[in-house]
């Protein structure tokens, strides 16, 4: 049986499959389908300093091979995460990645310091949410600001720090290099691509927020390209996500340079997607004589 374990910035994962932030809550719902211990880790719902209501509905629109969402970081705030969600998650036998989103540079640092000593395995700093007015993508689309917010979090904590990047930029490699230079231990990408749908009967956008983030298999080739480019531009590990729906997709993403993968929208179509991908990776390794899955990371041979 192949070794599926991977190491990302010093954090050991039993397998490389991690449900992506915003697609898995805090695990409570999907625990009613399978034990969370099957998963490499969980990237929890984006957590802010204070409770957030999120955006007006409708917040979802279907697209060819994917969907748009405009949730707007609805969450109970970091204190509820620490007192209610984290104690439960810590009993589940999987790695916990705390996804945090500050509305200012200072607040991002404050959020990170509040996680010190909490027992989370990793921080995923969200500088790429397209659905909020403050912070979010405003941080992730400017090299200087992306560096500043990364540094503020780095200075506030020694917890391994992964920065989640936006694809809605001219050069994602420049952003990646900036967060690397400012102390990021890893990067994860891609967050959703900004999109829009219009109901032609009402001439109104389907989403009440007018625009939203595109995810699902539709974005997979974009994600593979960006992961490949970033993996070639930085020395820190890359966690790949964007449209992964099968074990073959995960293999492809890892060959592009991802040390681990996150699975998001595919879970909505099939709640069992993460565990099917894990089982499929094991089978793929066995069929292809791969003893250690991490050996395939970045092995694509470009023309």
């Amino acid at each position: 049986m192949a070794d599926l374990s991977v190491n990302v910035a010093g954090v050991q994962f039993k397998n490389p499959v991690i449900p992506a932030s915003g697609c898995f809550g805090y695990g409570r719902e999907y625990e009613r389908f399978y034990p969370l211990s099957r998963l490499g880790g969980i990237s929890v719902k984006g957590t802010t300093r204070f409770e957030r209501m999120g955006n007006e509905g409708p917040r979802v629109a279907e697209t060819p091979s994917g969907m748009l969402n405009s949730v707007g970081l609805q969450n109970g705030g970091v204190e509820k995460f620490l007192s209610y969600e984290l104690p439960n998650l810590k009993t589940k036998g999987t790695r916990i990645i705390a996804n945090i989103a500050g509305s200012t540079v200072e607040e991002s640092g404050e959020l990170a310091s509040m996680l010190n000593g909490s027992g989370v395995d990793m921080i995923e700093l969200n500088i790429s949410c397209p659905n909020v007015k403050q912070g979010g993508a405003a941080f992730g689309t400017d090299c200087t600001v992306a560096g500043q917010v990364t540094k503020a979090v780095r200075d506030a904590t020694d917890i391994p720090l992964m920065v989640k990047l936006s694809p809605n930029v001219t050069s994602i490699t420049d952003i990646a290099k900036s967060v690397e230079a400012n102390g990021a231990d890893a990067v994860s990408l891609i967050n959703t691509l900004l999109g829009m749908r219009i109901d032609i009967k009402t001439r109104r956008p389907v989403l009440k927020n007018n625009v939203g983030g595109l995810s699902g298999p539709a974005v997979f080739p974009v994600a593979v390209r960006m992961v490949w480019q970033v993996a070639n531009a930085v020395k820190i590990p890359v966690v790949g996500m964007g449209g992964i729906a099968s074990a073959e997709d995960a293999v492809e993403m890892m060959m592009a340079g991802a040390s681990a993968v996150q699975v998001g929208a595919a879970i909505f179509a099939d709640p069992f997607a993460p565990v099917k991908i894990i089982d499929g990776l094991e089978k793929w390794c066995d069929e292809n004589g791969v003893e250690r899955l991490s050996d395939i990371v970045g092995t694509v041979q470009p023309w």
Binding site: G22, F24, E29, R59, V60, N69, Q74, A265
Partner: peptide, 13 residues
Amino acid sequence: RMACGVGACLVCV
């Protein structure tokens, strides 16, 4: 309008 149907994705407000 829904996506996950189980309470994780938070779209059906």
